[in-house]
Nucleic acid binder design. Structure first.
Lengths: 151, 151
DNA sequence: ATGAAATTGCAATTCATTTTCACTTTATTA
DNA sequence: TAATAAAGTGAAAATGAATTGCAATTTCAT
C-alpha cells in the first residue's frame, strides 16, 4: 500500500530529524527500496538487489541503512537459525509468523490471531509487557515431502 | 528426573555407537554436566561452569560436545536475537517457550498447550510437518517495570 | 601390544557484521 | 555564497562467535 509506505518513510524522516542525521541519496535509495519491496531480505540480498538498480552503493551503506531502519521501527531483524540475519518490514513482522522448511529453506508466512491472543494472556500472567514476538515452526514443507509419504 | 537424564545419556551412547565414536572422559564430563544441569547455557557459560569443576577442558571440546548433543537430539540451539547461541536440553525446549526481557536479559520459561495445538493446526493447514518450533515473547519483565513509570 | 581411528588443545581460519579512517557531502551560519 | 562543523561514504581492518587443521594423545578392536 502506498499509505503504509508513506507512513514508513515519514517515520524514517522523523527519526533522522530526531537524531540530527543528514540526508543522503544513497541511503535514501536503500531505505526506499527496502520499504517498497515489502519483503524480507538478508543484507546480501538487499545489497545485490540495490546494486542491480543503482551501482555504487556499498555493503557498509546497506548495513547502516538497515540498522537505522531497525532503530526507527520500520524493519525487524529475524534470525531463522541461519548464520545470517534477515530483515523485514515490521508492519509485516508484527502480524505474521513463519513456517521454515529445513529441506529447501522455503519460508511460509502465516498469521493467527488466536495464537497472538494466547500470547498476550501468557504475558499478562507473568506481568510481562510484550513489545515483540517471534514464532517459528520448523519442519518439512509440503513440496519437500512429495516423494510419497504415508500417514 | 534421573529417569530423564538416564534416557539422555543412553541416547548419547547410542549416538556414539552409531557413528563409531570413541569414549572420552573430558567429553563425557561435559555431556554429563550439561544433562544434569538441565538448563540453558551459552557455550561460554558451559565452558566456565565446566572449567570450575574440572580444569583442562578446552573451548573446542565444549563446542564439539555441544554439537554432538545437538545432533543426537539431546540439546537444542536457541538464539534469542543475541549474538551468541544458547543450548538447552531438548526435553525442556520441546515443551516450553520463552519470555525474554530486553532490559535485564532475564529469560522466563512458560508452556502453553493451547498455543501448541494451534501451531499444529496451522501446520496442518499448510501440509507442513513440524519437527521443532520456537516461540519467544520479547519485552519488559515485571521487575524491570517497577522502578520505571517516570514522570 | 599394535595400529587404525577418534579426541584434544591450540592456533589459525572463516564468515557475518561492525568499526575505523580518510575523504566527500550536507546543511547551518556568517 | 563561503566557511565550517557534522554526517555520510567506501574500502579495508577489526571484531567476535564458531569451526577447522594439525600434531600429539588416547581409545579400543584385534
Amino acid at each position: 500500500m502506498n499509505r503504509k509506505n508513506d507512513r514508513a518513510i515519514d517515520a524514517f524522516i522523523r527519526h533522522k530529524a530526531e537524531r540530527g542525521l543528514k540526508s543522503s541519496g544513497k541511503r535514501a535509495f536503500v531505505v526506499d527500496f527496502f520499504i517498497r519491496a515489502n519483503r524480507h531480505f538478508t543484507v546480501e540480498d538487499l545489497y545485490n538487489a540495490v546494486k542491480a538498480r543503482r551501482p555504487g552503493i556499498s555493503y557498509s551503506t546497506v548495513y547502516r541503512a538497515l540498522r537505522l531502519l531497525t532503530e526507527c521501527g520500520i524493519a525487524a531483524e529475524s534470525m531463522f537459525g541461519e548464520s545470517v540475519t534477515r530483515y523485514e518490514p515490521i508492519e509485516r513482522s508484527g502480524h505474521h509468523d513463519h513456517l521454515i522448511c529445513r529441506k529447501c529453506g522455503r519460508i511460509i508466512e502465516f498469521e493467527n490471531l488466536e495464537i497472538e491472543k494466547l500470547q498476550q494472556r501468557v504475558a499478562r500472567k507473568y506481568r510481562f509487557t510484550v513489545t515483540a514476538h517471534r514464532l517459528e515452526l520448523y519442519g518439512v514443507c509440503r513440496e519437500c515431502q512429495r516423494p510419497a509419504r504415508r500417514r
